[in-house]
């Protein structure tokens, strides 16, 4: 069974370039603004869209994404609204893959089966759930795969060759390589180390490998796009979004454009990469 994610990576491979994967927190700073941003992302150059499901206690996220989640919750974001946002986006775009990213508790409380059913109807293609390692695959990963939803796993610099097969087993869609040991948005990744890591992961899997955590500029995106199949940018987008807000933390007329401008810039970086013939 091929999914939107499989089809998108296959098409980009034909084009000979890496994917730009953009992360936005749903409901940040409010539902309507985040919907407007998500709708504008594909035109700005995003190839895949990761949407954060806000959570009060995001233990692997840095200050930027923590604050984004709290802004969204303060503005009344819920899981129901997150799925509604995907549905509204999907009504106008049937090709761009949507990956929901977050923590397990809000899904567990929503109910795993109901969540998967509603997510499929809304047009969700994949899930990244930070606090579900392979040891807990029975919780959501296996039910998601059975339902036809990709379950995308994080591999990290601490995932050694012995551990990699465990991590890659039951992973589908793509592998998300976290380029640093640390929280989101913390440090700039070293392009040389990243390319070695991507090569290492590719020895274990045929899945595309996207790289994220700490990517902020078009130049960093270009350097990573030379080796990886995708570049994930999150905290940098959240930062420009936050900078566009007024003193009360509300959206301004600049907010959507602030995000899409940076996405366009990053997309140019990704497209400027000279691909190292991998595979």
């Amino acid at each position: 069974m091929t999914t939107r994610i499989d089809r998108r990576f296959a098409a980009l491979k034909q084009e000979g370039r890496a994917a730009l994967v953009t992360f936005i927190m749903t409901g940040d700073p409010d539902y309507d603004t985040s919907l407007a941003i998500v709708k504008a992302l594909p035109k700005a150059g995003a190839d895949l869209i990761e949407l954060g499901m806000p959570f009060t206690d995001p233990m692997a996220d840095g200050p930027a994404i923590q604050a984004a989640g709290l802004r969204a919750l303060a503005a009344g974001q819920t899981m129901i609204k997150t799925l509604k946002l995907v549905r509204e986006f999907r009504a106008g775009d049937s090709d761009t893959p949507i990956v929901l990213m977050g923590y397990y508790n809000p899904i567990y409380i929503y109910g795993v089966d109901k969540f998967l059913a509603d997510a499929i109807v809304a047009g969700v293609d994949g899930l990244i759930v930070v606090d579900l390692p392979p040891e807990e695959d029975g919780e959501l990963c296996l039910p998601a795969l059975k339902a036809g939803v990709n379950f995308i796993r994080l591999a990290t610099p601490t995932t050694d060759d012995k551990r990699l097969p465990t991590v890659l087993n039951n992973t589908s869609g793509f592998v998300y390589y976290v380029s640093i040991t640390g929280i989101t948005g913390a440090a700039a990744p070293d392009a040389g180390k990243v390319s070695a890591a991507v090569a290492r992961i590719k020895r274990h899997t045929k899945l595309p490998v996207a790289v994220g955590f700490g990517v902020r500029t078009a130049e960093q995106a270009r350097a990573i796009a030379e080796n990886a199949d995708g570049v994930v940018v999150g905290s940098a987008l959240i930062d420009v979004l936050r900078a566009s807000l007024d003193k009360a933390g509300k959206a301004t007329p600049e907010t959507v454009k602030a995000v899409t401008d940076l996405v366009a810039d990053l997309a140019q970086g990704v497209r400027a990469a000279k691909r190292v013939a991998a595979e």
């Binding site: 233990m59 692997a60 397990y104 930070v130 606090d131 579900l132 390692p133 392979p134 040891e135 807990e136 796993r153 994080l154 591999a155 990290t156 601490t158 995932t159 050694d160 551990r163 991590v167 976290v178 040991t181 640390g182």
Partner: peptide
């Protein structure tokens, strides 16, 4: 062996921490 007391417990952590 997987750290469960009935349905409770477990290892719900980010992959970065699993090797640790």
């Amino acid at each position: 062996e997987r750290g469960h007391f009935g349905i409770y417990g477990g290892r719900f952590v980010a992959e970065t921490l699993m090797p640790n």
